[in-house]
Structures are given as structure tokens and as C-alpha cells.
Nucleic acid binder design. Structure first.
Lengths: 219, 219
DNA sequence: GTCAATGTGTGAAAATTTTAACATTAAACG
DNA sequence: CGTTTAATGTTAAAATTTTCACACATTGAC
């Protein structure tokens, strides 16, 4: 029975991956947890602890081999596989995802683009035609789809999510501003932009309050 | 000396706000931490604990008044103020932000839209014209801007972030895939879509591994 | 080939976060 | 108006996460 790794750790892994990728591009061959911690502004201890959840990737007296660690983290994150994605909701956000070429480099292939709006019929983004939502079941039957990205308004999101799951897609990247209630076997990752914006505004007012307090203290 | 509230709590506040908004729309007047916890799938204890970081908003024997609590959380999150936002990078993502009307309801006004691409000159989104990046300093001088959303490629993000800070903007909503190094007084909120996608893919392979393990166990 | 220096992996301590328990207060109700 | 019930605010315990500290394996200089 392996105890599973906390989501806090998982949230940090892509960041390690990013920094290692940059080091790799810069031609750096090896790095110690200390150097990396300085760059990333986290403790070296946390880096070592995090990595050791998955195994020992470093070598005492040497540090970590950048390329090796980069690839291992890639495997941990499942980036050694390919995922076909359909994007449902071909508004600006959906188009933005479809246009973002970098995803493909990591094995995430945008395969289909769907919308309910007939005005979008005929439009295509990077060669991917916008299809009408009615065509979805047929499309999913004929193509192996791993992930559905939901970029439509929240009003229809819940229903579409259910449909998508019924069609056999088990992973959802949810941009709609609601929490989806789905069977336990479905993996959901939420991107709530409004929440993010509210966190920003919280931190803005917090900083203003701090500034004010300091000013008063100095009177 | 007030000890400050952990970001874990802050991350949960927008979600409370959202659920309370829905209750409000549904005409619910009062709610107990228990009922809310059932809906939100968190413990009632956590809800009470979280709220009491900011003060006692409920009443013993009664629960919480939905409207009151909604508004109080709004104030905590700084949603009782208005923020003018400029979006730098008028690609699909920037346009998506500019088009998202709901932000305005919360007091986030998209005031300007900038890009380096001359091909976008003349384009306007919801009445907001795309301006050339050269016009930025002038524009910021003439308009009170609170937040800059960076939706351009990461290559130029760092430089633009510095420029924006020098122009006196102290809050950045960063969509570029890098960590910005900025003075301490600047508030940064990151939205790293790639990280989110990697977390999704981690959870996909994790679930697959689990499934496989269970299958093997049952042989 | 030896030996100091480096730097991981890891067990334990410290800090933080979450959950549980309960004393207290207000509402509801007869 | 008094009693019962509901549900908060709060203190304490449990769980989790982060940091510390150090034994020990490798490296690299001489």
C-alpha cells in the first residue's frame, strides 16, 4: 500500500520541471538542491524532500544531473505520454488554448474544437475546424480523446461535463466557474480565473492596509 | 501586530464567495456551517475556522445570514472597490479576458488593451481599442491603472513587467509562463496554465496506476 | 591513493493546517 | 417567560507539511 503524495507536492512539481528545462536549455549539466533553491526561492530541504517522494534522483557529493532529473519529473507528471484534447467552447479562451503551440511540445494535442454557436461554423484555428456540439458523440467515438477542456459559460458546463464523461472521457480541464460533480473515476482540474483575480485583489488591499499601518506607526 | 492569514485560507475565500452568491440568487436567507459544508464538501469546522480569521459573522443558534456574509467576504477580498486593468498582449487570451463581462460585475474594469503587433491596430474588443505598446506610458500617466494583466509570450513578459512597475502599477496578473522578479511592494498573482495541465496529467496517470494495481490485486 | 569538501537522503523537530470537541450564546417554541 | 435546541466561536488535539540536522556516500584536489 503506497501512501499517496500530497497535492501540495504535486503543485510544485511543474515548477521544478520548468526550472530544470531552463537549466537544460542553458546547457547546465548538474545542479545541487542548494543552487536550485536559491534560484527558485524555496528551501533546499523542500526540494530534496519533494523529489524523494518519488525516488532518489541525485547523487551525494554531486547533486542532480539536470537532464536526468528533468526527464524523471517529466515521467512523474505523465509527460512521456500523448494526450488528445478536445476543447468545448470555441470562444476566445478556447481559441487561445487551441493556439497555444507549447502544449503540443509536452504531448498535449488539441484534436477537436466544439461550440454551440452556428456563427462559428467554418472557422478553424491552426487547422482545427470548429465543429458543432451535436457532432461530439460521433467524434469521440472515432477518436481516442483523453481530456476535455471546458471553456464554455458555466450555465451549460455541468451538462456538457456529464455528457463528456458518458462518452468515456475521464479527465476534464474545467475553466467554467463552477464545481463539477462527477463520478469518482473522473479526474478534474479546475482553472478558476475569477478566483485568481480575487486573490490578487485581496493581496492588493492587504498590502495597502500594511502600508497604511506602517505610515500611522511612523507618525 | 496582526499575524497574517495564510494563503491556504485566502485560496478558499473566493469559493465561499461563489457558493454564497449562488445561495443568494436562490433566495436562501440563512445557512449554517453544516449545511454549507455539505454542499461544498469541506468540513464545517474549516468553514468556521476560516471565517473567524476575519471576525465573527455568524450568530449562535442561527447560523450565517447569507447576504451579510456574502458582502463581508466581498469586502475581505476587496471587491467593494474598483480596479482598472490593462491587458498587455491582445491575442486570444487577452481578448478572452477583455470579453469576460462578469469581471466588471465584481469591479474589475478592463480599461486598455495593448500589443506589439501592428496587425492588431484598429481592432477593438467590447469597445476597447487595441493600442500599441509604445502608447503604454502615456496611457498609464493619464489613467489610474491598478492592475496589469500580462498575456503575452514569456519572452517579453519580464521586461514589460518591469516597465509596468516603473510606471507605477503595483499589481500584476501574470499569465506568462515564468516567475517574475519584482520589487517587494508589487503584488503578483500567477496563472500558469501549463502547470495546471501537468497537474491534470499527473492525476490521470496516477488514477491509471491505481486502476492497474486494483486489477492486479484482484487476479 | 588519500583526504577534505560537497551534497544527498532521511529521521526527527518545528511549524502550520485541519479537524474535533465543547462551552456559550441566541433563537425557537410552547 | 422559561426551557430546549441549534449552531457559533474557540480551545485543544490530530494530522500534515516544512524545516532542520546530520550520517554517509562521492567527488575532486593533491
Amino acid at each position: 500500500m503506497e501512501k499517496d503524495i500530497s497535492q501540495a507536492v504535486i503543485r510544485r512539481m511543474p515548477r521544478y520541471y520548468r526550472y530544470l528545462g531552463e537549466l537544460l536549455d542553458a546547457g547546465v549539466e548538474r545542479i545541487s538542491s542548494n543552487e536550485l533553491s536559491a534560484q527558485m526561492k524555496v528551501t533546499a530541504s523542500q526540494i530534496r524532500q519533494d523529489l524523494n517522494n518519488f525516488g532518489g534522483f541525485g547523487q551525494q557529493g554531486y547533486g542532480y544531473n539536470v537532464r536526468f532529473l528533468y526527464e524523471e519529473i517529466g515521467k512523474i507528471l505523465g509527460l512521456d505520454k500523448q494526450y488528445n484534447i478536445i476543447v468545448i467552447g470555441a470562444g476566445n479562451l478556447g481559441q487561445a488554448l487551441a493556439n497555444y503551440v507549447k502544449f503540443e511540445k509536452r504531448g498535449f494535442i488539441i484534436t477537436g474544437l466544439f461550440d454551440v454557436n452556428p456563427a462559428l461554423r467554418g472557422l478553424s484555428v491552426r487547422g482545427i475546424p470548429v465543429r458543432m456540439l451535436e457532432e461530439l458523440p460521433e467524434f469521440v467515438k472515432n477518436n481516442k480523446i483523453d481530456i476535455a477542456a471546458l471553456t464554455m459559460p458555466k450555465e451549460s458546463a455541468s451538462q456538457v461535463a456529464n455528457q463528456v464523461v458518458e462518452l468515456g472521457i475521464n479527465a476534464i480541464w474545467n475553466f467554467a466557474h463552477l464545481d463539477l460533480e462527477l463520478p469518482e473515476h473522473v479526474v478534474v482540474e479546475n482553472v478558476h480565473l475569477s478566483d485568481s483575480l480575487m486573490q490578487l485583489s485581496y493581496n492588493i488591499v492587504k498590502k495597502e492596509r500594511e502600508k497604511k499601518r506602517i505610515a500611522e506607526y511612523n507618525i
